[in-house]
């Protein structure tokens, strides 16, 4: 399925954005570190939700990154959400 591929590029996009804002960030070490610990401010948090919207072509709440404040928690939430939406479309 394409969702695996999407996930990888989405993580890369998110990681690129965080790298542009935070010193010493690495995808390998910080996938479970909260965005605020990495030095992202509230506007940066909202920006992450925009990156997700752009990549997945779905609408998400601007507060997404506040509610799911690490890369891993955000991705796993999105996976579930996407699955639900696919189910919904099929039924």
């Amino acid at each position: 399925m394409t969702s695996e591929f999407n996930k990888k590029t989405l993580i890369t996009k998110i990681a690129d954005y965080i790298s542009s804002k935070a010193e010493n960030f690495s995808k390998e070490n910080h996938s479970d570190t909260s965005f605020s610990r990495l030095g992202l401010d509230s506007a940066d948090h909202v920006q992450l939700s925009a990156i997700v919207e752009e990549h997945l072509k779905i609408e998400v709440e601007p507060t997404l990154a506040f509610d799911y404040p690490t890369i891993n928690s955000m991705i796993s939430f999105l996976e579930k959400k996407l699955l639900c939406e696919i189910d919904h479309e099929q039924s």
Binding site: S36, R37, L38, G39, L40, D41
Partner: peptide
């Protein structure tokens, strides 16, 4: 240590250094 401080400041003031 830096991460801790970033997190604290972000939580309290919604800004970052």
């Amino acid at each position: 240590l830096k991460s801790d401080i970033h997190e604290l400041v972000s939580k309290h003031h919604e800004i970052t250094f």
